[in-house]
Write a protein that binds this DNA or RNA. Structure first.
Length: 568
RNA sequence: GUCUCCGUAGCUCAGCUGGAUAGAGCACCGCCCUCCUAAGGCGGGGGUCGGGCGUUCAAAUCGCCCCGGGGACGCCA
């Protein structure tokens, strides 16, 4: 069941299409293919509740002026059964529509009826979608890029779920391969240094330099002493990895949980080694997509849109990250049967996008089912100065550090405010200092204001149980005619579509501007229209509107996983 | 060099599947609480939408070429 807002829009699309066909039938317009047109809310709603460019986009095909086409459409328009009741043409050929007052009343009723469910749709028809995000290396703490990817991926997954997709949230744990080996080497050096002094071991330049490595080594030494000092290096590294890796993964999980991110699946790369990887290599081999050179196994990326070939198995016999990633995505599609897979990656991985999609084609799967959201990296600033955030420097700001300094609600909102494709400057001092000025507070304030009103009125014995304003009839709601009331209702009606848009465009940023918009419109309504003290026939409809606004704010904040305070 | 993201008000950015006078927040100036939360509302100043050419009835939006800035181009992940 589509929303009341969308019903009005869809009715118009149908009616306009019919009117064009009718005009052609009658000979008023020449016969031609109808170009796609849009029906949308005009920037200035004084012009109309909806507007269409149908006449203008068809001017060329119909070889007539947009104004004439508009007139022909209007002359053949049948609005019976539509929310729209009045139409006029304007400007260069726009057709503007005005809806019946009933439309506004029905939207408020719809929200009251659906309550917490308002905003949910079955748009996706249960399509099986996976969102894989963060997937930070388990060799150290998460950085700001992970924090941004976490918020973006999580809200995207929510939007997909709300819009009727069967959504799986997944974290890919890179617990195998080169970086784990490097992790072991780093731990080993720190362990030996801890027991035998700085000069007893050399920490390679490309090793992990962070203090967390030292902490692990020290804790390991406290537990096992010198037991691993004289054994085989392989054995020592394995013991250190076996000790530290689970701790790191647990830390990732708890940090993310604190950030309100919970995954459905923690998928371990190690489960792909070696069988699943061998299997995809076989498939590629059978499809003639690989060759051997210099002792390594190469993938013919150039046959599948790549600009150069890629190594799958190194001369030393170890598979590359890329080989594992092909096996991983083969698993997502062929083994687990996802219809759509969305990966949220840092923009530094952009070279990997075409490669992986091409590899899906090469392996006989459909690369177009794989979508990558590339996120420009976060530049961490402090007092206007760039702040080093390299994992190696050892003094980086981690996700848990961030949450110490910035309110959680603000951090989540801040990260989704900007679309993924734009670089984000996150000024720590600013975010911490000006937290009260963060837009998230503006939105939460609107929610708290409504709660306060409802509470005050309840204290005076008005609608104490909420029944009266939750069940105001659509007919009684017709009194909501003030421009501020209408503007607010119009926007409230768009929540389901806003969520669908965010899900389809992979752009959670739209939701943050939507909710800010709703807050603004509520504050304007609040200033212009009183509730308390008005006669009952106006008081209750306005209370119903307040409550509907609260529902929209609360539901949208819930989607963003941001709290809805009742008092501020 | 190739690929990619970005360039819109003093600052941070929306708008970009083309549409009717280019928006918001912050900052600045001035108003509005005997009245439901002033963490709010109203008004004001402030713009060659980086530049040029092109497509179109219509370009901040699409295409091409420049200019300026970030990022990626490993038998790393």
């Amino acid at each position: 069941m589509i929303s009341i807002f969308e019903q009005a829009r869809q009715q118009l699309i149908t009616a306009i299409g019919a009117a064009l066909a009718q005009a052609m039938e009658a000979g008023t317009l020449p016969r031609a293919e109808i170009a796609p047109f849009v029906v949308e809310v005009p920037a200035d709603t004084a012009r109309g509740d909806f507007a269409t460019n149908a006449a203008m986009v068809n001017a060329k095909a119909l070889r007539q002026s947009p104004q004439k086409i508009a007139q022909a459409i209007v002359a053949n328009l049948d609005l019976s059964g539509c929310y729209a009741e009045r139409v006029e043409t304007a400007g260069p050929g726009f057709i503007n529509f005005f809806v019946k007052p009933q439309w506004f009343a029905d939207i408020v009723s719809e929200i009251a009826q659906k309550g917490e469910q308002y905003g949910h749709t079955d748009y996706g028809h249960g399509q099986k979608v996976m969102v894989e995000y963060v997937s930070a290396n388990p060799t150290g703490p998460m950085h700001m890029g992970n924090a941004r990817g976490g918020a973006l991926g999580d809200v995207l997954a929510e939007a997909l779920a709300w819009s009727g997709h069967d959504t799986t949230r997944e974290f890919y744990v890179n617990d195998a391969g080169n970086q784990i080996e490097k992790f072991g080497i780093s731990l080993e050096a720190r362990y030996i240094q801890h027991l035998r002094g700085e000069d007893a071991a050399v920490l390679p330049e490309d090793a992990y330099q962070g203090s967390d490595i030292i902490d692990h080594a020290v804790a390991f030494a406290a537990e096992y002493g010198e037991q691993y000092l004289n054994c085989d290096s392989r054995q020592r590294r394995d013991a250190l990895i076996a000790y530290a890796l689970p701790k790191n993964v647990a830390k990732l999980e708890s940090d993310l949980a604190r950030y309100r991110i919970h995954y459905d699946v923690w998928f371990r790369e190690s489960t792909l080694h070696p069988d699943a990887i061998q299997r995809v290599l076989e498939v590629l081999r059978s499809r003639n997509a690989v060759y051997e050179l210099d002792g390594a196994l190469w993938y013919k990326a150039t046959d599948f849109g790549g600009d150069k070939d890629e190594v799958l198995v190194r001369a030393n016999g170890l598979p590359t990250y890329f080989a594992a990633d092909i096996a991983y995505h083969y698993n997502k599609f062929a083994v687990r049967g996802f219809d759509k897979v969305i990966n949220v990656w840092g923009a530094d991985h952009h070279g990997h996008v075409a490669r992986l999609k091409g590899a899906m084609d090469a392996i006989g799967l459909d690369g177009s089912k794989l979508d990558i959201v590339l996120m420009q990296l976060v530049r961490l600033m402090k007092d206007g100065e760039p702040y080093r955030m390299s994992k190696r420097s050892g003094k980086s700001i981690s996700l848990s550090d961030l949450l110490e300094e910035v309110p959680l609600d603000a951090a989540r909102f801040f990260f989704i405010m900007r679309e993924a494709g734009s670089a984000l400057d996150f000024d720590l001092s600013l975010a911490a200092e000006q937290s009260a000025k963060n837009p998230v507070f503006y939105v939460q304030y609107a929610h708290a204001r409504i709660c306060s009103m409802l509470k005050n009125l309840a204290a005076e014995g008005i609608a104490a149980d909420g029944e009266r304003y939750l069940t105001v009839s659509p007919a009684a709601l017709l009194v909501l005619t003030a421009p501020e009331e209408r503007a607010l209702i119009r926007r409230l009606g768009q929540l389901p579509q806003e969520i669908i848009n965010a899900a389809c465009a992979y752009d959670p940023a739209g939701i943050s501007s939507y909710i800010t918009d709703v807050a603004t419109l509520f504050h304007k309504f609040y200033t212009a229209c009183r509730v308390k003290g008005e006669p009952e026939e106006l008081l209750y409809p306005r209370l119903a509107l307040c409550h509907a606004t609260r529902t929209v704010l609360k539901n949208t904040l819930a989607l963003l996983k941001i709290t809805s305070p009742e008092v501020m």
